[in-house]
Design a protein around this nucleic acid. Structure first.
Length: 683
RNA sequence: GGUGAAGUAGCUCAGACGGUUAGAGCGAAGGAUUCAUAACCCUUAGGUCGGCGGUUCGACUCCGCCCUUCACCA
């Protein structure tokens, strides 16, 4: 065990003018996994975050809702916190930038910067909305691009041609706030002289563990020269008023990162911990910020410079990740892939998403794609099919034959050792934020454990009472391998791991605990640790996030790719329908199937052309065999036959049913009107 | 436009400090099995490693150019 580290970690502060979406969750999940990993290894690791609450957008949003900014951010904070909790983001503290701690630290930093000669005042000309009586940020002026004449472009740059310009160059500018034409006004602003810190920043850039791509980007910025940064805004503005400049407020991006410190200060005060020791220059504690690549400039230049200039320590590193795409494309409201965190948790469990993101996250800045189809197969296969399966397939033997007690020694200690030998490299992958690599190794071990069980065949051994010891040994071995896997996956799957710990006897697993196997003790009654994801839930999720398309003036074009209707189901053409061979069928026999309480085995007659078929139908909960015999119904006859453990199912009986999950399933098989006979085609 | 990143099996990605038959997972196909949540296990997949040149005894791996995609531009 290495020396105990003291680590402070943050993820970017979510902006308080709207709900969290899955892009936010990539970041908090990435951060949370890293933090949980550090804690699992026994380090002192604090994870703090906060809502970012200041700025013009929040002020205007509150105005439009007819509430105060304070009311708006209080409500959003509750929403954010509920989402973050649902995804098991284990903050040590979640605070707000609109807090006394933040005001205190922002003033302290500002005063230090001013004393150090890093603040300069000068007049700027800026767009002013006379109707709304406010200065307008660039994003709140729209007009025609002076370069390419594209209409409806923002005041700072053109999305069409990529040109950047200043707001007064815009043709026919309009204030987004009031619709009036902005005028130019002069105002005194405060500037942070970033260039004063070039030497320090260059040193910082090369001192730590910045990702290569980040270093490249910084070099680019250095080479074009560091510009002063306007840190003030005129009233009206929601934020902190500048102490020696009445009517001026700190720009939200000054006090936002200080919000990291404020959240930690809030935590320290609650617990009576020393704040300064973590933030003084040269502190032996470690500081890391997880951010998206869109805010790299703020975190890698302004922020270290502000910290340094204000007499605080600088971060050890910023860890930058890419963006989230869904089904290979940018998140889109019209496609239903702008998925909010809250709608995800309404439709789907959150841990599988943690797992999926982890399986795709490396240490680089690459974008990460959430392919929803991949998500379902990956998660079902890895978590249920592989991981949980190990415990599931052994627990029965332990319960039936050994009173849930584990054997007192492992039959294959070498295999156990083999697992332990993998721990250091898995730890290194986690440490480097290469979760995809870590999970690859962990899942390879899960395969190894399943293979072991398969080779030992406890189900065969169990038939011979004299070989009970061997069965016991195999299960004990497998459960112990499972225990290692659970420990390794705790950072990613805290909830599943918690349930597994209960099954294993109730002790919380730390990294070192698996050095010794669990022997001779009792395990608890096994309960399903995870359930498969139903692809239908994905469709429902997409539908729920779909915003109505603006009616198109173009007639709908014929399109071979799947389209989606209002409730999120794929549309199908008449040609698609023609692929289905639907037939009237007569049920000539129905019987229970040994070993299942879901299925009935049906023999159906679908006419002279196709003859009789065997179909297994999951309708036992609703029908007794005698109720079905001699009935007519509808059968999907050219469904690909499916091999089941009870035999081959050669079709599907059509039935209507609710998706009730309370076990009381209502199922109704379909019947034709009288006159129809077996074999008729449905069209 | 500038800059950066990336283009490897159907999909998502590893890897390759230049050197025998380029890997994994998922999907798909075949087989075995029946302990396990219609779960598991085994085998198979023949991809000119974006294109064209160059360096080299030898390049997917180095260099140049081109194409495509994505991102950033305070």
């Amino acid at each position: 065990m290495t020396a105990k580290r003291r680590i402070l970690v943050t993820s970017a502060l979510p902006y308080a003018n709207g709900p969290l979406h899955l892009g936010h969750m990539v970041e908090t999940i990435q951060t949370d996994i890293w933090v949980r990993f550090q804690k699992l290894r026994g380090h002192e690791c604090m994870y703090v975050c906060a809502d970012d609450t200041h700025g013009t957008p929040i002020m205007l949003r509150a105005q439009s809702e007819g509430i105060t900014p304070e009311q708006l951010i209080a409500r959003v904070a509750l929403e954010h916190k509920a989402d973050l909790d649902a995804f098991n983001i284990g903050f040590d503290n979640y605070h707000s930038t609109h807090s006394e701690e933040n005001r205190e630290l922002t003033y302290r930093a500002y005063e230090a910067l001013e004393r150090g000669g890093h603040i300069e005042r000068r007049m700027v000309r800026q767009a002013y909305d006379e109707k709304a009586e406010m200065f307008l940020p660039d994003r709140f002026v729209k007009g025609t691009c002076p370069r390419c004449n594209a209409a409806n472009q923002y005041g700072d740059s053109c999305e069409n041609c990529g040109a950047t310009y200043s707001t007064n160059e815009l043709i026919d500018p309009v204030s987004v706030v009031s619709g009036s034409t902005p005028v130019e006004r002069e105002s005194e602003h405060l500037f942070f002289k970033l260039a004063n810190f070039e030497t320090m920043l260059r040193e910082w850039t090369h001192s730590g563990t910045l990702q290569q791509a980040v270093t490249n980007k910084l070099e680019e910025w250095f080479s074009t020269g560091l510009k002063d940064w306007d840190i003030s805004r005129d009233a009206p503005y929601f934020g902190f008023e500048i102490p020696d400049a009445p009517g001026k407020y700190f720009y939200v991006w000054l006090d936002a990162p200080i919000g990291y410190m404020a959240s930690f200060l809030n935590l320290c005060r609650e617990h009576g911990w020393g704040f300064e020791a973590w933030w003084k220059p040269g502190s032996p504690t470690e500081l890391y910020h997880f951010i998206g690549k869109d805010i790299l400039y703020f975190h890698s230049l302004f922020w270290p410079a502000v910290l340094h200039g204000a007499g605080f320590r600088t971060p050890n590193a910023v860890f930058v990740h890419g963006f989230l795409t869904i089904n290979g494309e940018k998140m889109s409201k019209s496609r239903g892939t702008f998925i909010t965190a809250s709608s995800w948790r309404e439709h789907l469990p959150t841990e599988p998403l943690r797992y999926f993101f982890a399986s795709r996250l490396g240490s680089g800045l690459d974008d990460l794609d959430l392919g929803l189809h991949d998500f379902v197969t990956k998660v079902n296969s890895d978590i249920v099919g592989k991981l949980v399966n190990i415990a599931s397939r052994c627990s029965g033997f332990l319960a039936r034959n050994f009173d849930n007690r584990l054997a007192i020694k492992l039959p294959e200690p070498d295999l156990y050792e083999e697992f332990l030998h993998k721990l250091p490299s898995i730890a290194e992958s986690y440490e480097q934020r290469d979760y995809a690599g870590a999970l690859r190794e962990i899942m390879a071990l899960a395969d190894r454990a399943n293979l072991y069980i398969d080779q030992q065949k406890p189900w065969l051994l169990a038939k011979n009472p004299e070989r009970a010891n061997e069965v016991h040994g195999v299960c004990t071995q497998a459960i112990n391998l499972f225990r290692i896997l659970i420990m390794l996956l705790k950072p990613v799957l805290p909830e599943l791991a918690g349930k597994a710990e209960v099954f294993l006897g109730g002790h919380e697993l730390a990294w070192e605990d698996v050095q010794r196997p669990l022997l001779g003790s009792k395990v608890n009654h096994y309960e399903a640790l995870a359930t498969r994801i139903d692809p239908a839930a994905i469709s429902a999720l997409i539908a729920a996030n779909q915003q109505p398309q603006i009616a198109s003036t173009q007639p709908a074009t014929v399109n071979t790719s799947a389209t989606t209707n209002a409730i999120g189901m794929s549309e199908a053409t008449i040609d698609d329908f023609a692929k289905l061979d639907l037939r009237i069928a007569k049920i000539i026999n129905a019987e229970h199937v040994e070993g299942t309480d879901k299925l009935l085995k049906l023999t159906v007659d679908i006419g002279p052309e196709l003859g009789t078929r065997t179909i297994f139908a999951g309708i036992r909960a609703a029908y007794e065999p005698h109720q079905l015999i001699d009935r007519l119904t509808l059968v999907f006859a050219n469904l690909t036959p499916r091999k089941m453990r009870f035999g081959l199912s050669e079709g599907m009986v059509l039935a209507a049913g609710s998706d009730a999950t309370d076990g009381d399933k209502k199922i109704f098989i379909l019947s034709p009107d009288s006159g129809a006979i077996a074999g008729m085609k449905v069209k």
